[in-house]
Design a protein around this nucleic acid. Sequence first.
DNA 1: TGTCATTGCGCC
DNA 2: AAAGGGCGCAATGACA
Length: 544
Amino acid sequence: MSPAAVLSGPFGTLDHVYVVVAGERLLPVPPVGGAARPAGRPGHWAAAVRELEAAEGPRWVWADTRETYAPLLEQGVRVARCHDLALTEGLLLAHEGRHGEPRSARAAHARLRGLPVPDDRPSAPGTLFAPEPLGAEAVAEVLADQLRRIAALPEPGRFRLLVAAESAGALVADEMAHDGMPWRRDVHDALLTDLLGPRPVHGMRPARLQTLADEVAAAFGRPVNPDSVQQLVKAFKGAGVALKTTRQWELKRIDHPAVTPLLAYKELARLHSAHGWAWADQWVRGGRLRPEYVVGGVVSGRWATSGGGALQIPKVLRRVVLADDGWLLVVADAAQLEPRVLAAMAGDVGLARAAGEIDLYSALARSFGGERDHAKIAMLSAMYGGTSGDASKLLAVMRRRFPKAYQFVEDAAKAGEEGRIVRSWLGRTSPPPSQRWKELVSGPEGSRAARDRGRFTRNFVVQGTAAEWALALLAVLRGRLPEPARLVFFQHDEVMVHCPAELADEVIAAVTEAAAEATRLLFGPTPVRFPMGAVAVESYADAK
DNA sequence: TGTCATTGCGCC
DNA sequence: AAAGGGCGCAATGACA
């Protein structure tokens, strides 16, 4: 695939740029946050951004999307494209084998100038005063340096796409936090009350949990805190049941009257503590859930959240996510994304042919000469390094039928085991082995440590590329949504759009087109299909 | 009283 | 049905 092939569409090059700070052809932007924000005319620069966006649609360059874009959104200003210096710096540093170095635009600038580099990593002690924002020249210098470094890479076209997609993700993350996902607090409260009893005063157990805790204690004939692993293990031991852990699956194999109320307690206690009333108080405002997304927060390129736990919302709460009156939720997820990504990356003709069908595993099974379930196990084991059950026998079939795909993930695993780094399709780089790992790998448990890292790098190339495809989808879809439809949720391979009911069909079509475009951007012409199942529903619970 | 590691479990 | 890897979060318990 030629690098030029991936440069069309919404990503483009960086030849039309506004650096959002002071200077010629550049916009003055006030320092954001802290006491440095000038009083009086907060809308002034936002209005200028709005005008230039409408007139020229540039790619905005700024040090940090959250700092600059969140205030723009507050002013009702949205932009189509940006280049986030900090995210780009992180990608470049990792590619250059400098994974842990500070990645803020300020740090990048200090490195360029040979000045002391401020430690902006999360582990660094917090600073008392927000630093002055970088000036225009400094931002422009960092940008120029980054463009030079990207141009020197072996696959600059792919990396430019990665930078553009990552930056677009940053825009989406801020927009989703700004718009929020519809969340019916009244439905949530009713559900909690139904399952747990009325909301207790702070620090108390809800009635239903207390009843279950009492039943557990009664089953043991003595007081036991069901939240305490130690107490539970001791209590079971006293009852003649030896347990290593108190995980669900282990408890389920045990015949003891405490098990049933304990499992019920665990499930409900988790709902209460992780997504109960206190959680809603903190994260739901004005009928919207507004979590903080961390773009690139996972080494593989997946997003993380800091607070709000939006990527771990339990399925029982999906019925709390309800469209506004007259609106619908378009929920779409990519079917079997990771095996499709592997098929496209590895250039394995047989696997790509199977991935050209809607049900990849059935197609795989036909080509495999076996059952669908077996084909699925073989595929997952290849991607994740599984060893359980029939895996090795099935992997042998996999190796024979799909040699290039098999070799692709084997190579990634071997690199990991040998302490080398691996890269995703667009060039996101895995962390190098830690010092601890290097010590471990030459010790008595060395082969175990090597295998563990092999599984990580094996998974990294697939998960990382899947994350890139999803980011590209998000970026394209964002640009195709009709007003006033809004992206309100994104979870690895799933998106949700909130839109007026009459626009739902248009939004579903946009999702389908965006999937095709994302596929083209990453892989060029490929027989592999990436089907997105998109449905319009009133409640998230009805999406599956 | 605070910090840190561990355990367990939710999501993909 | 699950397996694999990746996360965030809450509670406990050890320790300072």
